[in-house]
Design a protein around this nucleic acid. Structure first.
Lengths: 125, 125
DNA sequence: CAGGATCCTCACAGATACTG
DNA sequence: CAGTATCTGTGAGGATCCTG
């Protein structure tokens, strides 16, 4: 059995750290959840769901939260009650990432119109 | 003919600007190409290809460059020669984005081990 | 309430062959 | 040299049903 395939995990495109994090946060929901928890401190599952809107499926919210938890960016606390209560909050590590995302968001907000115009011009050329 | 489907382009998840840019740069190659062009100023197609390594296909490099060009982040100059010569360089807009990506990369480099450890612990729990 | 378990699908990415 | 044109697969994301 050969091993031609280099695993994404092991290679990470020249071990560029930026790629390692983009592999995680380039997905559809991680950043959004992180920003929400960065603001609101403590939230339950359905509360996060409401914050996002109806656009995320239960499954994807679960997957996203589990990934963030596994990475140590979000803390998940289960209270042994009936009905069950689960609260999510951002960790210091997660909080340290938020400002960087905010910076990117800032840049995006400032230059969005610029990009859209450029995109439009490109289409008609 | 109904129009139930909301196009990704039009919706952008609550028009959150951060999502708009992550939709673009969450892909596999855009950020890498941007960083390379941010350093090397002017490069030809095959030169970029070499910088990345053998891991990107011609097609994906073309697609990536075209998208960056459309967004106004990269300038594409075709010289009417035989054989053809095409040079790519970063635009001021693109250059203004690079530091933000670098910041993220910095964070990633600093906290990568932390995250990996956390991930390992999560797996064995 | 907070998910787990399934099934589906479609867009993105890759491989390959060809060309001005 | 710097691309196009096709074909194909894979897996993130979504819909739905079920449960401690």
């Amino acid at each position: 059995m050969e091993e031609k395939k280099i695993k994404k995990e092991d290679f990470n495109l020249l071990n560029c750290p930026i790629r390692t994090i983009l592999d995680r946060f380039g997905d559809k929901w991680s950043v959004l959840v992180l920003l929400i928890l960065g603001e609101k401190k403590k939230l339950r599952f359905n509360a996060i769901n409401k914050e996002i809107g109806t656009d995320i499926s239960q499954k994807m919210l679960t997957v996203t939260l589990r990934t963030l938890e596994a990475d140590g960016l979000v803390l998940r606390t289960v209270y042994p009650e009936v009905p069950p209560r689960v609260e999510y909050e951002i960790t210091p590590l997660g909080a340290s990432l938020v400002p960087h995302i905010d910076n990117l968001a800032q840049w995006a907000a400032v230059n969005m119109q610029n990009i859209k115009t450029s995109r439009e011009r490109f289409k008609n050329s």
